[in-house]
Design a protein around this nucleic acid. Structure first.
Lengths: 249, 249
DNA sequence: CAAAAATCAATCAAAAACTTTCAATAACAT
DNA sequence: ATGTTATTGAAAGTTTTTGATTGATTTTTG
């Protein structure tokens, strides 16, 4: 989504200030008003800022970390659709686990606020607090790239909880090899979360199907897969035992 | 909601004062009375301030505990001085505990990067990661006002670690009653952190002396106090056993 | 308590900012 | 090269914001 050098300049201009005037951006980037307006419209769609009369304002929940933003720009629309559906599965009073990951992050705006959430994502915790949701963060070592809690401490913290439902992303879904992810430690956490939940949901856009990553999380029957599109031949590879819900917008 | 530069200026004007006159804002922002009135109406709807006859007043929703942002605006200079000195006490290779709190937060820019840090502050963890410092966050319930981890989980997470040094803020320092803070749960965490550390340091500007808050953390001899200024008669109330280091900038 | 002063809400025309549209230029693939 | 697409800047008309004016309301003063 941060396609041009201008986009980056605009984001940077908001790093230190809460608001920036359109005219300032025109001078800063040496482009016309029209161009800046178009940029602002795009950046607003990508949730990088909010347009206001006279310029742009920084979003309150600042999810503008470089590692995460790259991910969240891809298939963003699909992720939103899946995330919104997943959030709809959560009922008031539920106690749920949210795994760190960009798709799950998109669920948060749509969650009801009378729930209890346990998460291992630092950014997720921040977003949840902004929504005034009662939030627990499991302890442990912080993985810098994704700001997820991992390690022995995280695993042990988890065991103190039980969940009605858990939601997570994965990197690979394969008929025989099940759910996989690149990080061994994250895999262990996801595995534990599933086993502590009455119901488990995997949020996955169509690019994850038939992929295989390094560390196995669980077999396919352990969770219900929520996806946006799935062509027929891919779907046939998965037996009828596998629970797949195709979400249409 | 903070959409324009003016809105920001109005909020800032209330940062240091309790009330601000409409006429002051007119001069400060070079806009008309009408405009300021409209701004105040909007900002009141957004719960940023309260309109009063003649201007606007800061709203004091929270009884005892000022929010992190409010806190960090007061005595900022003194805090920086203390924080920078405290950070200088940390040696490369150390394993330290940083308690949630605005003064401790100011230490982070000055810390060496070859250390290991355990903290219960969500914001602190984020800052530490930006400095590429190896960071552990203890688990538990998140207190929305300060974004600090508290509760049973936090206390238990802590016990898995041992520290060379720990650093924390307090709300009250009293010759007989020791260190105190308004939140019982936070007090327990601070207490535990001290007992797990070879050396403990309390960062406190002069306003904390002879104050008493609700929950006791520890006796004065449990930690070394780092402060900026201390008049002689106050100092005499504390016995020679109490370790106080007065930091000069 | 009543008059005076100050502050406020409502209204309206001017100014500023916005959206839409379109032609010109730049980047791209054929 | 040639046609196609995407990006840009300018000009049109529309909407929002602004500041001055009005009279109503509140606070202060005598």
């Amino acid at each position: 989504m941060l396609e041009t050098e201008r986009h980056q300049m605009i984001i940077d201009a908001l790093k230190n200030k809460n608001t920036v005037k359109l005219q300032e951006l025109v001078e800063l980037t040496n482009s016309s008003e029209s161009t800046i307006r178009r940029d602002l419209t795009q950046l607003e769609e990508g949730k990088f800022l909010k347009r206001v009369h006279g310029g742009a304002a920084r979003l309150q929940g600042k999810l503008q970390e470089p590692s995460m933003t790259e991910k969240s720009s891809k298939n963003l629309q699909a992720k939103r659709v899946i995330a919104q559906y997943a959030a709809g599965l959560v009922e008031e009073g539920d106690c749920i686990y949210l795994d760190a990951g960009s798709t799950v992050l998109e669920m948060i705006p749509f969650l009801p606020s009378t729930i209890v959430v346990v998460t291992n994502g630092l950014m997720h915790a921040n977003e949840l607090l902004d929504k005034k949701i009662k939030t627990f963060l499991i302890g442990g070592n912080i993985k810098p790239t994704t700001k997820a809690m991992i390690g022995r401490g995280a695993l042990e913290s988890l065991t103190h909880y039980r969940f009605d439902k858990c939601f997570m992303g994965v990197n690979g879904i394969h008929p025989q090899l099940g759910f996989t992810t690149p990080d061994q430690e994250e895999a262990m956490i996801k595995q534990e979360a599933i086993s502590l939940s009455r119901e488990a949901f995997v949020l996955a856009d169509e690019t994850k199907f038939s992929e295989i990553s390094f560390a196995k999380i669980a077999d396919l029957h352990a969770a219900t897969i929520l996806t946006n599109e799935l062509d027929v031949e891919t779907k046939e590879q998965y037996g009828s035992k596998t629970k797949i819900k195709v979400v249409t917008s």
